[in-house]
């Protein structure tokens, strides 16, 4: 036990969050967790949708969501649609809301499943049963959204989607948008800046989600390392007593991580909505207002 603890305390905490393929180069912790998240997301939303959809009894009850799960899903979906997306997308909200809802729920479920120690549980089961589960028997699990490859893929889907929607709706407007409404003599500066800005958006989306999810998990792993170090290196009452402090820190960070899981899913979805809104919703003073909104959102996300 003490040997293990010393080894764990000396281990690199980053190792705990790194993706490891265990069947070929495709089947890894991340891909397994993505599939699991997909199943959980569908299993959560589809039954709820049936209970949110209008009934056919002809009474007022037809219009009510029935059951706790349906009300939970509806409350979140309705809040996102009416309070987050509609102020940006206005009357076009319902046209784009399915993709935005999918981003939110899929990322959220991924983030939350990452907080469940599936990796450690599967590794433990494997150790008890004497079989190697996962990469060299260290289990299957982890957080899919702490892989830069996954967040990049999601950001790429977001980027392709909102640009495709903008081009499909108004190709000329899309090109005009690259001039940022500046007079023609400013175009040599503005067009490259806007093009860079266009490509920076998905990079920012990918890095933000990746960094937030990875950072929190590394802190948890590091604090757990402190717990083991204090308990074993110092030992006795003092060592075990002091080990309580980082342990409480782990609990606190875990609560923070739950909050971060929601916030990051929200930020990713909200920014995707905002980028889409900049391209497909044209109204007076759009650049001024939207850039302000974007800067506000960026500042908000950087705070986390």
């Amino acid at each position: 036990m003490i040997d293990f603890a010393l080894t764990l305390a000396a281990a690199n905490p980053v190792d705990h969050v790194v993706d490891k393929p265990f069947i070929g180069w495709l089947i890894s912790n991340v891909t397994v967790m993505l599939v699991l998240s997909a199943i959980v997301t569908i299993a959560l939303i589809v039954p709820a949708a049936k209970r949110i959809a209008s009934g056919k009894s002809g009474t007022l009850d037809d219009l009510l969501a029935k059951g706790t799960l349906a009300n939970l899903v509806e409350a979140v979906c309705l809040y996102l649609r009416d309070a987050v997306f509609r102020p940006v997308l206005h009357e076009e909200t319902d046209k784009y809301v399915p993709m935005l809802w999918t981003f939110f729920w899929f990322i959220l479920i991924n983030n939350l499943l990452g907080l469940v120690p599936i990796l450690d549980i599967t590794a433990g089961i494997g150790a008890i049963m004497g079989v190697e589960i996962g990469h060299h028997g260290h289990g299957v699990g982890g957080t899919a959204t702490q892989s830069i490859w996954v967040t990049s893929a999601l950001a790429a889907v977001s980027f392709l989607w909102f640009n495709f929607q903008a081009i499909r709706k108004d190709p000329i407007g899309f090109l005009k948008h690259l001039t940022a409404g500046a007079p023609p003599y400013m175009w040599p500066i503005m067009v490259p800046v806007e093009i860079i800005g266009t490509f920076v958006k998905p990079v920012a989306l990918a890095l933000r989600l990746f960094a937030n999810m990875t950072g929190g998990h590394i802190i948890v792993a590091t604090l757990l390392g402190f717990v083991v170090s204090l308990a074993t290196a110092l030992g006795g009452v003092a060592g075990h007593g002091m080990a309580v402090i980082p342990l409480l820190g782990v609990v606190a960070i875990y609560f923070l991580e739950i909050m971060v899981a929601f916030i990051q899913a929200y930020i990713f979805t909200f920014l995707t909505c905002l980028f889409l809104g900049q391209l497909v919703v044209h109204h007076h003073d759009e650049h001024h207002e939207e850039h302000e909104a974007e800067h506000g959102a960026e500042a908000h996300s950087h705070a986390h």
Binding site: T7, A123, G124, H138, G139
Partner: peptide
């Protein structure tokens, strides 16, 4: 039980 594997 997972600890030795993880440590390794």
């Amino acid at each position: 039980s997972a600890a030795p594997v993880l440590a390794a």
